Simulated assay, not measured.
Amino acid sequence: MSGIHGGPDALGVPRWDFSTNANACGPCPMALAAVQRADPQHYPDPGYTALRCALAAFHSVAVERIVVAGSASEFIARITAAVVRTGGQSVWWPVLAYGDYAHAAQAWGLQRVNEPAQADLLWLCEPASPLGNAEPMANTVAGQGGVVVLDRAYEPLRLSGHCSLGAEALDRVWQLWSPNKALGLTGVRGAYAIAPLQGLALAQTLTRMAPSWPLGAHAVAMLNAWVQVDTQRWLAQSCVQLAEWKTAQRAMLQDAGWQCLPSEANYVCARAPQALDVPALRAQGIKLRDTTSLGLPGHWRLGVLPPAAQQALHTAVLETTKETSP
């Protein structure tokens, strides 16, 4: 169900928001300054010429391989529509996966299949959502003949491990990048994809299918800042900090009886030792992400937050447990 998401809700912005995977060290100062300097009076270049060149240079690929998108979710919807338009009928995604893959497939009438070899469109995500681990099917799926998309939303926030796909395999798949999480700027929507070497015709189709100006001035500013050396240096330093917080957060959870699953990213899925009083926690400014909609019932996904937030969670869970105990 794609409508379920982390972040602010009807009660506003949670003080201690474990429900999103945004970089808790953010916002990135350089990217934030660039967004604040953006010129909202004028349209961006409709072809995003300079931005696409900058992104291509950053990834060392030909500029023709860069397709800009309003967001990762917008690209998911658009490439699904493109596959249907060219005769695609089936789709594959992992058992545990971001809900928008299924939402787009349902909207366009694609049938989900269990075998990657039977699919016209295939989805991968590394680090995976919701677990934050490597995808065991990655190399198998990357070798299929359909349109394969690797969602790399959390690659910049990888705290350990490495991508399962090597350079040759990456050139055979679509790579979807949405840096706003890594930059701590999830309110700025903007993404891009790198087409595979044999995907230039589909890249042109996707560009023709896009609405006018899918990226506004603020998104352009964010993505231009994303590729700068000082931004990448800040990101690397933030990952060091996040790794320290993650170690402490896992230890706190495990000491309190939570069962934590392995993760290589800035979030962890865990099963609470008892039923959580979610409204009571939310009233105390704490929000968690129920992973049922991501295919993992009975668990919560918790973004890595600073020690003060960890302590607030620990205290609130204890207090609400006491209040609901017989």
Results as ranks from 00 to 15, higher is better:
A270V: 12
Q144D: 07
D277T: 07
P136N: 11
A128R: 08
P29I: 07
S19E: 00
L150M: 11
C25E: 12
Q41A: 15
H103F: 09
G70M: 05
Y101W: 10
T86K: 15
M209E: 15
W234K: 13
S178L: 07
A309L: 01
Q311W: 06
L215Y: 06
V95S: 15
E168Q: 07
S73F: 10
R85C: 04
P326V: 01
W177F: 13
W123A: 00
L110H: 07
T247I: 07
Q259N: 14
A256Y: 03
A243H: 03
H5P: 09
V84A: 15
D45C: 11
P127G: 01
A169Q: 05
D45I: 01
T315Y: 00
L253V: 09
L215F: 10
L313R: 01
G303Q: 06
P8N: 05
P279G: 10
G7Q: 09
C239S: 11
A182I: 13
Q284M: 13
Q111L: 05
I4T: 14
Q311D: 15
V229S: 12
Q259V: 15
A22I: 10
R289I: 00
V148L: 05
A82S: 14
H59I: 00
L253R: 00
S73A: 13
D17K: 00
N21Q: 12
A72C: 07
L200Q: 12
D9H: 06
P306Q: 11
A221L: 09
Q254G: 10
H314R: 15
M209I: 08
W16M: 08
A309Y: 04
G199W: 04
V13L: 15
Q106S: 11
E126R: 01
K246D: 01
Q204D: 13
H59V: 00
Q89L: 07
A153P: 14
G7R: 04
P44S: 05
P297A: 09
L276M: 02
W16E: 10
A251T: 14
V173A: 07
Y101P: 00
A128E: 08
P94S: 02
V147K: 00
T80H: 03
G26S: 08
A219I: 04
V149C: 08
W213R: 12
T86G: 09
N23M: 05
A221W: 09
Y267S: 13
G184L: 07
V148Y: 01
L157F: 10
L242D: 02
L170G: 02
A69C: 06
A275C: 04
L305H: 04
A256G: 09
S325W: 13
P130Y: 02
Q232Y: 06
A283K: 07
Q198G: 14
S293Y: 03
L235N: 08
A69E: 02
P40I: 11
P127D: 05
K246M: 14
A134S: 15
Q118F: 02
A251D: 01
T291A: 08
G146M: 03
T320S: 12
A81R: 06
L215C: 07
L253S: 02
A81W: 01
D17W: 00
H103C: 11
R282L: 10
G257A: 06
R250L: 09
P307A: 07
A62C: 03
R158S: 12
A280S: 15
T49C: 10
